[in-house]
Design a binder for these strands. Structure first.
Length: 284
DNA sequence: CAATATACCTGGATGC
DNA sequence: TGCATCCAGGTATATT
């Protein structure tokens, strides 16, 4: 499910409702997610604490408690965080419930269990956050996402631009859907080796990344099969997708058929007319 | 370092 | 209706 826009929509939806509330009780399921659910830390460091704010770094949500403890959540492919009345019956694949002091629950539901839940207790939270953040790539909506910076990161790499955008250690938050959309909008072939991109092309990538990610956030994210925001509403950006999922459909700019290929095991869509490869870039 | 494969899971769509 | 197969928004790890 969730790339940067969906995670951000979740963050905003939740934050508005839970800031200042106290987690009175934590209930964790038995199954493991990407890792074991840290039941002891949840019990000892999250239960009874007040939620101060929620931040996002890459595709991770950082729920900051007033005590300084941070609850880190990643939604994986199918994860959803929902806010609902405690009286609503539990759903299949609910893995964590944070009961709040106003009768509402924050529930983490994830059918494929690729998500993750981690607790950084206050004593070490700052160190752990620094270490974590240093492993993640540049935020595409942040100030460091500049042509100079990207040019430098790409200088000694010959990986395809789509792989570069999707590598979370290089660029944060961009997954398969938005990588396809950004490259279509920037008119750059997904296979272009990054070290050969010009400053001008990087500027197009930066501009289109920001534009598309912000547009998607405004639209409430993309609901391809089952994404729902924190209040249970789907997103609508999927209606505005120009490339992703449009195999053999006409390009919305030039009418040529969109081509689907596979890059690093992921479905890749591009317009062979608008997104020209270099002379020596193999066309997929 | 780069590219690929594999693994972790469930569920929906498709085809026979 | 049943069953097999493929595919899916992510990330970590091993292997070449």
């Amino acid at each position: 499910m969730p790339e940067l826009p969906e995670v951000e929509v979740t963050r905003r939806g939740l934050l508005a409702q839970v800031a200042g509330r106290t987690v009175v009780h934590v209930v964790a399921g038995k199954q493991r997610l990407r890792g074991e659910i840290p039941r002891r830390l949840l019990r000892e460091h999250v239960a009874g604490q007040e939620i101060q704010t929620i931040d996002r770094r890459a595709k991770y949500l950082l729920l900051r408690l007033t005590s300084g403890t941070i609850l880190v959540m990643h939604l994986g492919m199918t994860g959803k965080l929902g806010l609902m009345q405690r009286s609503i019956p539990p759903h299949k694949h609910d893995h964590l419930v944070l009961q709040l002091d106003n009768g509402m629950d924050i529930r983490f539901n994830d059918s494929r269990r690729f998500g993750s839940i981690v607790v950084w207790p206050a004593e070490h939270a700052a160190l752990q956050e620094t270490a974590f953040s240093s492993r993640e790539g540049i935020e595409p909506l942040g100030d460091a996402f500049t042509a100079d910076h990207l040019l430098n990161l790409a200088r000694n790499r010959r990986i395809p631009i789509k792989s570069f955008l999707m590598n979370s250690r290089l660029v944060a938050g961009i997954g398969n859907i938005y990588a396809n959309e950004i490259l279509f909008a920037a008119r750059i072939h997904p296979l272009r080796p990054v070290h050969r991109l010009t400053q001008k092309e990087w500027r197009r990538i930066i501009r289109e990344s920001r534009r598309i990610l912000l547009l998607a956030i405004e639209a409430g994210g993309s609901t391809i099969s089952d994404f729902l925001g924190a209040s249970g509403h789907p997103g609508y950006f999927q209606l505005q997708l120009q490339a992703y999922g449009r195999k053999t459909l006409p390009c919305l700019r030039c009418g040529q058929e969109i081509v689907r290929s596979t890059l690093a095991g992921r479905a890749t869509y591009h317009c062979p007319a608008c997104q020209q490869a270099d002379d020596d870039t193999t066309i997929a």
